[in-house]
Every structure is written in structure tokens, then in C-alpha cells.
Amino acid sequence: MSHGPSAAGGAAISTTPHGHQSEPYVPVFTGETKARLDALMERYPTRMATLLPALWMVQEARGWVSPEAMAEVAGLLGLTAAYVKGVVTFYTMYHQHPVGTHFIQVCTTTPCHVCGAEDVVKAFLQHTGCGELGVTSADGKYTVIEVECLGACGFATPVMVNSDFIESVTPEKVPDVLKRYG
């Protein structure tokens, strides 16, 4: 069973106390980010339509979408925080908990599996120090997850690090790949 970010994220939300009282939340949408969102809103008939891009902006700025950020987005778009969370949890690509600086997605769908993706995953877990899927390495650099079909079955095993696409990764190539993302 895959440890997708959504399951891990759910657990993180219910167990970690959020900074509502201790550390004040700093809004994402100020200055240039706010201007970008405003410009985007003009393209659509409703504010709600900018929800997905707004969430991307949050993830871009903070690396993940915190409950406070969901509430901020909800306020800006006239939605409820619960609705925004419903959307965030529907898509696996929004992180509901902090991830490493480099987010590594290894394809383990059938053809890649046949070509040894399992070992690629193991290699990544070992060399990053993450140890487990979905867990961020102690140095905060890496998070590794399995992902469904990256659409490159001819180049098994494909891997995405952040937004870079790397094909034909074997366990031996993993240290080299990681060198590029020190």
C-alpha cells in the first residue's frame, strides 16, 4: 500500500499543533504574489475558479499548503476553509505537510515495476537518508514518494525531482542524480 502524501498529510494535520497562537501566520498573498492572483482572477468569471492556481502559489512560496494557508485562500476567494481543504486533499500533488527541499517522485506503475523500480525506490530511500516513503530526511533536503505513471514507460524507471524529469534511472545512477540536488 502506497504512502501517498495525502495520507501522511492527514496524520500530520491532526497531530501537530498549528501556530495559530504561538507563532503568527504570515500571509502568502501580499505584494507581488497578491498582484499575480488578482491578475489571474480577472481571467475567470468567478473568484472560485482561481483556487487551483492560488494553491500552487502557496506551495511555490511555502513548499506546502498549511491549514492556515487554506484559510487564507478561502478568505480571498470567498470559499470556506473546509471546502479548500476538500480540494487540497483531493489532489495528491498539493502537499499537506512540509516536504524536503527536493521532492522526489519515483514511478512504480506496472512497466516500471517490471523493470525494477522497487530497487530504484530503495536506493533513493537509502541515499537520501529518508528511510521511509513520505518521510523527510533529517537534513530537510529530500522527500521520496512513489507515484502512479509518469507516462514514460519506454524509459523505465522515470523519476521526477521537483519539476525536473529524469528518465531511465537505475539504482546505480541514484547517487549521481542526487549529486545534482545537493
Binding site: S6, A7, S14, T80, A81, A82, Y83, T89, F90
Partner: peptide, 27 residues
Amino acid sequence: VGVLDVANRGDHAEIIVGADGNPEHAG
């Protein structure tokens, strides 16, 4: 008011209270 919604749609679908589970924050 809109405190509640469904999250984690799919086999983990569940009713949530706001974004962080705190009804006060969710209004």
C-alpha cells in the same frame, strides 16, 4: 456558515471541521 466539508475523497473520505479541525477557526 460552511464549517464542514468532505475531505480526502475516495476510500478515506471523511467529514472535516474547517481546515485544521478547530471549529472556532472555521467560524
